[in-house]
Amino acid sequence: MKVTVTINGTAQSADIESRKLLVDFIRTELGMTGTHIGCDTTSCGACTVLLDGTPIKSCTMFAVSADGHEVQTVEGLKNGELHPLQVSFKENHGLQCGFCTPGMMLVGKALLEKNTSPTDDEVRWAISGNLCRCTGYTNIVKSIQAAGAAIEGN
């Protein structure tokens, strides 16, 4: 089936099998490997993308269902310079191995769009569908809050 999905602002058309998952479309058809495959069972959130601005798990959606929609991946965060979330994850040691980071940043982006000064609890609640096995989450929470402060300060 022929689909057109707007990825990070650019319309991408392809003829794909209906069973192709959105994450595989992004990684293998488009060669954008920032979106990770972790558990592949809807548990870990490593494959998180924003679908029309809302975070979802791209391993649990068919690419054909994204036809006509807008998808943002981690590659879309940087706009000339690093996004405040990328800066704050770097400065606050919000990552170690980096596997969960794209998902964490995209969930953070959706959260900060509603609220630039979320409490610890609000951040932890927002990222509760995303697993990190390195950091113990503390620095991820700090990073998202620091990015919120930076966005507010601008």
Partner: peptide
């Protein structure tokens, strides 16, 4: 119900 990302979809 589930987690925030699953609830979004």
């Amino acid at each position: 119900v589930a987690d925030p990302l699953v609830r979004n979809r």
